[in-house]
Amino acid sequence: MWRTRGCLLQSSTLFRQSLRVLSSNSTSAVGVSNINQVVSDGTPSFTANESPTSAEEPSQSRFQKPKEKYKGSIDNAETAKFAAIAETWWDHYGPYKPLHAMNPVRLSFIRSALCHHFRKDGDTAKPLDGLKVVDVGCGGGLVCEPLARMGAQVLGVDAVEKNIKVASAHAIQDPSTSSIQYRCTTAEQLVLEKQEFDAVLALEVIEHVADPMEFCKSLAALAKKDGMVIISTLNRSISSYGLAIVGAEYILGWLPKGTHDWSKFMTPEELALLMNRASLSMEEMAGIVFSPLTQRWSLSDDTSVDYIASSVKKQK
């Protein structure tokens, strides 16, 4: 019953977050336009502002740049309002508590997969230094921020504009995450812009897209040759039906009914097949499980409900 809580919440975050923001903040029009300047202003290049592959990353300027913006063009009162919204997303004791609890587990998988693949020393504070990463469907930036702290150069994209605003408002509060770029766009758009990344993440997103095959191909297209694509999703199993649909939507009411369409869930074999067709070869897979006894999330070989898989882009 508990196992799926976090992932379900995350996949429903688009819906819930937009509800919350819409219902509570009708006066934010000014702030919205201001924040847009902090976020990417639509220029297609991640590279225009900063060379993504440049190895030196002067921490001073990294820290000061957003600070200037923060003090300069942004209205403080409006920023505070957005920070307040961000705190809902980022409130570890709020509605997203299970997601926050589960997050370190996903991140330790991502960290070790990336370190292993890119031959990085995992025993340092910033092992992902120099890697360009995109998180497709980033929500409030719960994965983007830790990746930035690990040294990666992160772009977070989400189709929901409100999420992007919340994520950017939260990221600029901390010098170690203020380098994250957020854009309200889609994977397909990034492909059209011919952007390429060392690693492409799509966590709890693929079960919501109309055409998983096309989506998977877009993710692959965003990865550099020999780059990594990491996908997490819900398994189409009896237990996921019981836990994620019946339990979370109908009995416990955590999620609005109809959030998930069980028939769109994907078994690990199907995901591997999809990846293969998109010229991605699956490397590692792990289940993400919750133990009600210890109240802890952990990685497991039980992939029957929620799982995460890493794959490498083969030669073009």
Partner: peptide
């Protein structure tokens, strides 16, 4: 202030506190 006690995650509370 704020984030310590906001166990409810209620946006309204946070906004008024802000």
């Amino acid at each position: 202030s704020g984030s310590t006690s906001s166990s409810t995650g209620n946006l309204f509370e946070i906004l008024t506190e802000r």
